[in-house]
Measured scan of single mutants.
Amino acid sequence: SKIRITWGDKTWEWDGDDEEVWKRILEWARNLGDEELWRHVKEWVDK
């Protein structure tokens, strides 16, 4: 399956939905430097 994140007018996609993928997404969000996006992603990961 895919994980799709839409933020503003951008959309990103990742293949898979296991823990490793979420770790990569969390790292990606942090590297993007958008605090609010990172917080949202972290909330999803922690669920």
Rank of each mutant, 00 (worst) to 15 (best):
V45E: 11
N31P: 04
E27Y: 06
V21I: 10
G16D: 11
K23V: 07
A29S: 05
K10I: 10
R39G: 12
V41D: 00
E19C: 03
N31Q: 10
G8P: 00
D15G: 07
D15S: 09
E43W: 06
D17N: 12
K23E: 12
A29T: 03
W38R: 07
W44H: 04
A29C: 05
W22E: 06
E13G: 02
W28N: 01
K42L: 15
R24F: 07
W38A: 10
I3P: 01
D17S: 11
R39E: 15
E20M: 11
V45A: 15
D34S: 07
E27S: 08
V41K: 00
W12D: 01
W7G: 00
G33W: 04
E43D: 15
K2E: 10
E13P: 00
L37E: 01
R39Y: 13
E13H: 04
R4A: 11
I25Y: 01
V21H: 02
W22D: 03
E13C: 02
W22A: 04
K2V: 13
W28M: 02
R24K: 12
I5A: 01
T11H: 08
G8V: 03
D34E: 07
I5S: 00
D46C: 10
D9K: 04
D17L: 07
D9Y: 02
W14C: 02
W7S: 02
T11A: 07
E19P: 14
E35C: 04
D17G: 11
W38H: 14
K23M: 09
L37R: 00
N31A: 13
R30E: 15
E13V: 10
R39T: 12
K2T: 12
A29W: 02
K10V: 10
E20I: 09
V41T: 01
T6W: 04
W12Y: 14
D15N: 11
W12T: 05
W14I: 04
I5Y: 07
G33K: 09
L37S: 01
R30K: 14
G16S: 10
V21D: 04
G16Y: 15
A29D: 00
S1V: 14
H40N: 12
G16N: 11
R39D: 14
L26P: 00
K23D: 15
D17M: 06
G8I: 03
D18L: 06
K10P: 00
W28Y: 02
L32Q: 15
N31R: 11
R30N: 11
R30W: 12
R30M: 11
K47A: 15
N31W: 07
I3A: 01
W7Y: 12
A29K: 00
L37Y: 04
D9L: 02
D9T: 08
K47C: 02
E36V: 05
K10R: 11
W44L: 15
G8F: 05
E13M: 05
W44Q: 09
G33I: 05
E36L: 07
D46S: 03
K42G: 07
V41L: 10
I25P: 00
W38C: 06
D15I: 09
S1N: 12
K47P: 04
T11N: 05
K23A: 08
N31E: 13
R4Q: 13
W28Q: 01
W12V: 05
L32R: 10
S1R: 12
V45L: 11
V41P: 00
I3D: 01
R30C: 09
H40W: 15
K23T: 10
I5G: 00
K2F: 11
K2I: 10
K47F: 08
T11W: 10
S1F: 10
R39F: 12
R4G: 05
W44P: 00
W7I: 14
S1I: 15
K42C: 12
D46M: 03
R30Y: 14
D9P: 03
G8L: 08
K2A: 10
E27W: 07
A29E: 00
E43A: 06
D15Y: 11
R39H: 11
V45M: 15
D34V: 09
I3Y: 04
K47Y: 05
L26F: 05
L32F: 15
E43K: 02
V21F: 03
D9H: 06
W44K: 02
G16R: 13
K47R: 05
L32D: 08
R24S: 13
G33C: 09
R30F: 13
E35N: 04
W22L: 09
D17C: 04
T6R: 08
E27A: 11
E19M: 08
E35W: 05
E19Q: 12
E36N: 09
V21A: 04
W7F: 08
R30P: 01
H40S: 15
G16W: 12
R30L: 13
K10F: 09
R24I: 13
L26I: 08
H40Y: 15
L26W: 06
E19Y: 10
L37D: 01
V21T: 14
W14Y: 03
I5R: 00
W22I: 11
I3N: 03
T6S: 11
V45Q: 12
V21N: 06
W28T: 02
K47G: 14
D18F: 06
R4F: 14
